[in-house]
Amino acid sequence: MRNPAGILTRRALTATVAAGVGLATLASSALVSPARAADDPLKVGFIYVGPVGDFGWSYQHDQGRQAIEAEFGDAVETTYVESVPEGADAERVLNQLAAGGHDLIFATSFGFMNSTIKTARKFPDVMFEHATGYKRADNVATYAARFYEGRYVIGIIAGMMTETNTIGYIASVPIPEVVRGINAFTQGLRSVNPEANVKVIWVNSWYDPGKEREAAETLFAQGADVLTQHTDSPAPVQVAEEKGIYAFGQASDMSQFGPNAHLTAIVDDWHGYYIDRTRAVMDGTWESTDTWGGLDSGMVAISDYNPILPPEVVDAAEDARKAIEAGELHPLAGPLMDQVGQVVVAEGEVPDDAALLSMDWFVQGVLGQVPK
């Protein structure tokens, strides 16, 4: 495997960064990526906010990386760096990947946004892709998935399966993506069970199994008999299995961690997008774009339903999924009222993407506040 500019590859690079040593030596002295010969493999780099073994967000992105390798074989060479904190560390790693001859770099967390933009200015010949962000440049594209569509579907399941009418929600960090998902889940929940409420606990981390477990146990103690999450470890599913309640997986099918508790999961499927964008660099058609795919695109999917679900519950979930895919149902269509009863989205209206991307308020039915 080629190793230009002294950059380490795959797990060796991961281990170096995790150990916190040797970072400076990985970068080229010139802020220009080495030229790639026509017969050299395309170098594709990935930077992850969590470990590839989180079985959630970073795990699914790494499945997409592996899909690139499976599709293109020796024509590509992929590298990843896992567990990179959002901030200065991310900028250093991005610089190292770009200086190490990578032609295409995927930065896969919202908090990598500014670091990606700064690095892209230094390496205009490198193509960057940033997940869930909104800042673009000639060599920076953005991409995300409409996870809130899947959250509406599982909200319906929760509303039909709960007996206590209390649903626990383990939330990561208070950005619009997370708030939007909580609201969509609650709208789905209340579409079939107007008496149900959602209790939210913020753990202020994308991946922290200890905090996620503690939050799940607290919510169970407060009467929740269904747990859902926008965090990346399977800890909440494991707690649900231990307590004899229900749960939903996040980003990937987590049923192995709670075969009785796990009802289904929202699956993030990046395979097609990563293959398409890699091919675009290869054939010279890559452009800076903004992609926001939903259930109809395949970027969001619902995993297999647990056989314990009654047929009428599966039917209700599938009806909603199909209606969303067909554009007949919008999870956040009006009327939407905030927690104090003020109409924010009128009946018959649908919030545009700008409103969705800036959502910082909760709908009725959510107990708890959006941290400021």
Results as ranks from 00 to 15, higher is better:
126 V>T: 06
220 F>N: 07
297 S>W: 00
22 G>M: 03
344 V>Y: 10
147 F>C: 08
335 P>R: 10
364 Q>H: 10
66 Q>N: 09
271 H>A: 04
265 A>C: 02
124 P>I: 11
191 S>N: 12
232 D>L: 04
333 A>D: 02
298 G>V: 07
318 E>L: 06
281 V>Y: 03
361 W>D: 14
29 S>M: 09
344 V>D: 01
106 F>N: 11
88 A>R: 13
67 A>H: 04
348 G>P: 03
364 Q>V: 07
302 I>T: 15
131 A>W: 06
99 A>W: 09
235 A>T: 06
111 G>E: 12
52 V>L: 02
314 V>S: 01
218 T>L: 15
304 D>A: 08
145 A>Q: 02
298 G>M: 14
52 V>W: 00
184 A>H: 15
235 A>Q: 15
63 Q>A: 11
6 G>R: 11
7 I>E: 09
193 N>T: 07
14 T>W: 08
304 D>P: 07
101 G>D: 15
214 E>A: 11
8 L>H: 12
153 V>T: 02
306 N>Q: 05
48 Y>S: 14
227 L>K: 07
188 G>L: 15
78 T>G: 02
206 W>A: 08
75 A>R: 10
352 D>P: 08
91 E>H: 05
39 D>M: 15
109 S>C: 03
13 L>Y: 08
59 Y>K: 15
146 R>C: 04
234 P>S: 06
141 A>V: 01
12 A>G: 11
